[in-house]
Simulated assay, not measured.
Amino acid sequence: MTTVTIYDPPMCCSTGVCGPEPDPNLARFAADLEWLKTQGVMVQRVNLAQEPARFVAEPAVKALLDETGGDDLPALVINGRIVARGQYPVRAELAELAGVVTLNVSADYLASETVCELIAIGAAVAAGSESCLEFHHNAAKHLGLSSEQMRRAAEIGAEVRATATKSVMGTKDRLIGGLTQSGCCGGAAAAQPTPGCC
């Protein structure tokens, strides 16, 4: 497991985000470190004001202190080597430094025919349009998309449709009340359904 250790300049707390007006860069960095933990990276933070002995115990950081007097803090250390200094890297830089592979989705990919057809399949199911579903199924199949990919897109569309139906029925119940029992389509109160009704 990769371990990233951040050697912070003197701060009032371990993250520097306490107080009435926290530095937004420190808040952003704290959130990025939490994200890094979810990617399987071990993260440690060492505050010069609270743990100066740990700065001296890390050879690379001690050399940095001797060189700059602490002006180049923070320092990020991975495997005993300083990989960044003098600023808090943004999330993409943290991921690269820690060797975390992230999905880089480009605008060209999002606009590709395959993605558009999968979106269209989901939209066709959500809209309840059989003709659109058949058309986009054939187009997606022609592009080489698998049945599993198309099935997942359709399932998402079905979930959207079900959620919309549930929502509108809830609004209907709130505005005009529940359904009344009638002879049409049976129901608990109907002895026999009306012929040809359902």
Rank of each mutant, 00 (worst) to 15 (best):
M1R: 07
M1T: 03
T2K: 12
C12M: 15
G16D: 13
P20D: 10
P20T: 04
P22A: 04
P22Y: 02
L26N: 00
L26C: 01
L26E: 01
L26A: 02
W35Y: 10
Q39W: 04
Q39F: 06
V41F: 08
V43A: 00
R45N: 02
A49H: 10
P52D: 13
E67H: 07
D72G: 10
P74S: 01
L76C: 04
I78C: 02
I82A: 07
V83R: 08
R85P: 00
R85M: 02
Q87S: 08
Q87M: 09
A92S: 08
A92R: 08
E93P: 00
E96F: 04
G99V: 04
G99E: 05
V101P: 14
S106Q: 05
C116D: 07
E117F: 01
I119T: 05
I119K: 07
V125R: 04
A127G: 09
S129Y: 08
C132Q: 12
N138H: 11
N138E: 13
A140M: 11
L143P: 03
G144A: 12
S146L: 15
A154S: 10
I156K: 08
A158I: 00
V160F: 06
V160K: 02
T165W: 01
G170P: 13
R174F: 10
I176P: 00
I176Q: 00
G177S: 14
G178V: 10
T180I: 09
Q181K: 12
S182T: 13
S182K: 06
C185L: 11
A190I: 11
A190H: 11
A190S: 14
Q192H: 12
Q192E: 12
P193L: 06
P195E: 08
